[in-house]
Design a protein around this nucleic acid. Structure first.
Lengths: 284, 284
DNA sequence: CATGAACTATCGCCTTGATCGATGGTTATT
DNA sequence: AATAACCATCGATCAAGGCGATAGTTCATG
């Protein structure tokens, strides 16, 4: 079986174009490299180098084997990389729960930076709203969450406001009766169906003052609004990105409202280095 | 450095859920597996298994490392696979030159079968016509070629006709004057510009009897025909697939012509097992 | 609760393979 | 012709993988 040392010797020899140079690079003696390549050639039953000239050059078969060997070395270096990260306490998998309330610009920037920093770390993104997000973090199912700001959180959660503001406004389909009105008061609004977020934890605290339909995500609400089923409070960026011009913003007193996003994590299941790093990126 | 044996022991132990079972599977003693896992844990500075219960179970970190370890083993088995193929004389890289004359159905079927049979073999496809194809095979640059049948080939080439027939017909743009005529004789045809294949080897044997534009591939000819620059003989399937209904077939005596495709290879640089296998698939 | 079956950890010993330094042969440069 | 750099080979050394035996755990069962 081709061992790591042998493969490394082969790859270095191939890329350096010289056994001696490879030996110097790897800090081994020249005879070691020579023996390694020879043993590899025997094991694979192939001639890897053409030794007729001064400097050994790869045979065509050698070129192909070089690729395969480099794949192995790359895989082992990935293994060592993630091992050292795990040994330093980095979580094996990072779970982030976000609201689709959340404006994606900063988050995407943070994610791409994260991808550079922890290329091999598994990342799980959950989508949920309000109480569901709190529950996910509390239970330890998610390490970090980004949620629409609430007045208070359970005592075991820590929150910090993200420096970024979006807006939530009221929208209806362009075909909806309300779309024609220049300005709308509360009573008029109440005469039409509201599309509202429902959480899974807290299915529906029925303080309904009118007909209400609910869905567990803003994206579903948007689709229901597009269907003309009622008016809905929606994040502006979401409508801009997925609304495709089919929605109309309503002019109602008190709207649009500014939106503040909190980062949440748990004192009991504190995020590891990767989670903390992501948090600091998001909060800077 | 994590050796293959150790990794294999780890992966087997993880998938079997038991060190002893892994030992049986790998034909090693139980102590070997135990020692291997222990040494791996020391090397990586990680606890991979939770030994508190009867059967050892992977820790979260162990799950991640299992993935990485399997990547390495997969890479080494690929290395061994291609090594054994190369050792049996399979060419390190197969170069096939085809004419875009060639109907793709059978060729695509052959390619996908090829992909099953030689998953790790590098494949290069060159596109050329007539004399260029012959030159590619003669020089050894391509191992196999599929070309429009010619009367004779250089003595060092072997040819065999592919059992498949396509048709070449004359086409013009729908806006072209010829498109309006129900039937056309040779003289009328000669009064308009011909779009003809030019090879690179044999740039243009100027027996032109009229205004002629030429291009090195049928696809370019098709585009020129779509531009309305003249009439062109084109393979039917090519027009059906890339013509997008913009071309009109001409009714001329002697057209459409049946098209025969020859497989070509060289006696001097005979194709290896992979090339021969592809040939037999194509000729069956 | 006692027993037995199956499992893991550890110890001593052996074999394999990676490594080194020394030596000699080959190739290209001066 | 001399030199410098390169590769192959040999014998010795040492670490790591392997085995078998043994002892300690864990779990199911009567």
């Amino acid at each position: 079986m081709a061992s790591q040392e042998v493969l490394q010797a082969f790859v270095q020899a191939a890329t350096q174009g010289s056994f001696s140079a490879a030996a110097r690079k790897l800090g081994r003696s020249q005879s070691t490299i020579s023996a390694a390549v020879a043993s590899l050639e025997i094991d694979l039953d192939l001639i890897l180098f053409d030794r007729s000239s001064r400097k050994p050059t790869l045979t065509p078969a050698g070129h192909v084997m070089l690729q395969r060997a480099e794949e192995i070395l790359a895989a082992t270096s990935r293994l060592e990389m993630t091992a050292s990260q795990l040994a330093q306490g980095v979580e094996p998998k990072l779970t982030v729960a976000i609201s689709d309330t959340y404006q994606s610009d900063r988050f995407e920037a943070a994610l791409s930076a994260f991808e550079q920093r922890y290329p091999d770390l598994e990342l799980e993104c959950l989508i949920a709203e309000c109480d569901d997000l709190v529950a996910l973090v509390q239970s330890g199912r998610a390490h970090v969450a980004f949620a629409e700001q609430q007045d208070s959180y359970p005592p075991d959660l820590v929150s910090s406001t993200v420096q970024e503001r979006t807006e939530i406004a009221l929208f209806v389909s362009r075909e909806h009766p309300l779309a024609a009105l220049a300005s709308i008061d509360q009573d008029t609004l109440q005469q039409h169906r509201e599309l509202r977020l429902a959480t899974i934890v807290n299915p529906y605290e029925s303080r309904a003052k009118g007909r209400v339909w609910s869905a567990p995500s803003y994206l579903m609400l948007l689709e229901m609004a597009q269907g003309g089923f009622g008016w809905a409070p929606l994040p502006r960026w979401l409508v801009g990105r997925f609304g495709a011009g089919t929605l109309q913003e309503l002019n109602v007193r008190g709207w649009p409202k500014p939106l503040f996003v909190d980062a949440l994590w748990s004192r009991l299941h504190p995020p590891g280095p990767a989670g903390s790093w992501l948090l600091s990126k998001m909060l800077e």
